[in-house]
Design a protein around this nucleic acid. Structure first.
Lengths: 199, 199
DNA sequence: TACATCAATGAATGACCATTCATTTTCTTT
DNA sequence: AAAGAAAATGAATGGTCATTCATTGATGTA
């Protein structure tokens, strides 16, 4: 068969199948069927099952990093940058539920292997948040007493959990705009009523 | 054999094994060995493998809910309540890495079954945050324009991610106190530099 | 057309492991 | 102490896939 890039076809199929069934419940034969390819063909393009998962992730998050960086570079204000990151993340996860699920569920699974892997692309993604925070601190717009490394985890975790919920409950409770706006408020200004000054 | 509550013994063993290997990579025989019990014995106390996982979770989170509620009831200030919740969560997850891992990793896995299950104990736990926020809003201490349902997800997600990192990286980068304090700052007052000083 | 090279196929293999159940051990009652 | 009941055992079963590889098909070359 004159393959129109089988590699890509298999990745797309695998993303879909992993998202639907989870890594351990996904069968190679499911992926093969989805990609309209023989089971054995998959092994011409990937070493094994986990290799497929990692390829799926690498591909998708790499793209996300590139797009996010592109959006950010035009904007100088760190507050706006943070907003852009939040909205971009939520939008992507809402649009691409397969990616969302693969990110959220699968990559918390195969402990050892993933732990090592995560130190590359995934870290790079989360570190974008830390960069924004550091920039804001340099410009004296963000508080100096916030540790970027804890804040970045908090913000990523919040985004991750909110978009996870979208995948779990079929109903779409909140729009991206509404959720994003709420989260920005929370991170930027906190939960406390502005006028009240605490003692 | 002089059974000293095998049920409990199996649960403890299962928690340990699930945390170490993950649900799908954990063997019933591993759990049996850890509990010093025959493989078959496990089926006298549990219906099947997933039943063990759910029992582990139910047990542990039930306890956490009880302890957290107890700590909260003495404190009237919603800001302090939030602080108590944050610190209790982080402390528990740091102390009980097995529980942390079971919560964080396993329960994001078996999609369908867990989705239904999560609507009970897990939701109850996260809803404690929403209750605190609503209380703060009634008292006009927290902003009215924050939606408790999004804020609760954000705060839980942040806590979850920060404690997840503790489990992944062997080094203990930040103490519970430091991380808790940072997160409280972030949620309560936000990231922006302010004139008014909190507390 | 004949041959060579490379890609693709999918049935067969073999390892793995949750679950079962016939048997053994321990406990209770009389 | 003996018999019956209950609990525990762990080897055997049966089903499930990931992975392999002998075979087939496609494409290019001369």
């Amino acid at each position: 068969m004159k393959a129109v890039n089988k590699h890509a076809k298999i990745i797309t199929a695998a993303t879909k199948v992993f998202a639907k069934k989870g890594f351990f419940n996904a069968r190679i034969s499911d992926i093969a069927k989805e990609a309209k390819v023989a089971d054995g063909t998959i092994y011409l393009y990937f070493n094994n099952k986990i290799d497929i998962l990692l390829s799926v992730f690498e591909e998708e998050i790499g793209l996300l990093i590139k797009q996010t960086r592109k959006l950010l570079e035009a904007e100088p204000d760190p507050r706006k940058k943070l907003e852009i990151f939040v909205v971009k993340h939520l939008t992507t996860m809402k649009k691409n539920k397969n990616l969302a699920e693969v990110m959220q569920i699968e990559l918390r699974q195969t402990t050892k292997l993933i732990k090592e892997y995560r130190n590359s692309k995934f870290s790079e993604y989360v570190d974008i948040i830390a960069e924004i925070i550091e920039l804001g601190q340099q410009q004296k717009i963000f508080r100096q007493d916030i540790l970027p490394n804890i804040a970045k985890r908090s913000i990523f975790g919040a985004l991750d959990e909110v978009s996870r919920i979208w995948n779990i409950t079929l109903e779409t409770n909140y729009s991206v705009e509404e959720a994003g706006c709420q989260m920005i408020k929370l991170f930027i200004s906190g939960i406390t009523e502005k006028k009240s000054i605490h003692r």
